[in-house]
Amino acid sequence: MDTISKEDIRKPENIVYKRTELLTDKVMSYCPGCGHGTAHRIIMEVLEEMGIQDKTIGIAPVGCSVLAYEFMNIDMQQAAHGRAPALATAVKRLNPDKFVFTYQGDGDLAAIGTAETIHACNRGENIVIIFINNGIYGMTGGQMAPTTLEGMKSSTSPYGRDIKSMGNPIKMTELVAQLPGTIYVTRQAVHTPANVRKAKKAVRKAFENQKLNKGLSFVEIVSNCNSGWKMTPNQANQWMVDNMFPFYPLGDIKVNED
């Protein structure tokens, strides 16, 4: 066993895992340890496995992932702040044979884009919404978002979010699960290998659902924002497990029978 050299192992036929070709060679603009990179990668891996790269149109949001079209090697369009589901509706209605998805953060989807999100879900548009929830406005400097937890510190709630004066955090995923237009609603995370694999299965199911033309698939990915939370990436992941998951429990909320 000790005789084998690294050159013998590092051969193309022995590759178990490599970065998907559907991600461009650009270095992602996200902070070290940010869940956005993993989320981008699992979406692109699903598209590669399904072989629908040339039939998919993505909608980029405003937020940290505003430059998603720089990293995803597919056709993409960038929407005005919060309007990604409205744009996706138009794209899907004009191109019914294409696969359309939006990729949005919580500031985009749960704050300025609440109306578009809820009505797209209620109309049951045949699109996929990927919702990255990190409980904060990451790009603009860690301000309080609608999804910020009670007592959570941010740059605009330095003493922690006070429910009486600042309102309750909003559970968008549970909200849209009640609407008849959605067929698949789930919440996942990407901080451990097991969770990444589960999240990938959920994204795969969401894209498979688009062929059924029965409604909207909504995948929330609870993510970290280590620079906004002022922690190291691994501390932020642990904080997410201890604090985010009790309020945003992982798992399927609404599942369709194929």
Binding site: M1, I4, D8, I9, R10, K11, N14, I15, V16, Y17, K18, R19, T20, L23, V27, M28, Y30, P32, G33, C34, G35, H36, G37, T38, R41, V190, H191, T192, P193, V196, R197
Partner: peptide, 16 residues
Amino acid sequence: AVVCPDGVITVYRKRI
């Protein structure tokens, strides 16, 4: 490689 946010790791495996 599965958790790497930037996808910088390539993994090889060989049976001996």
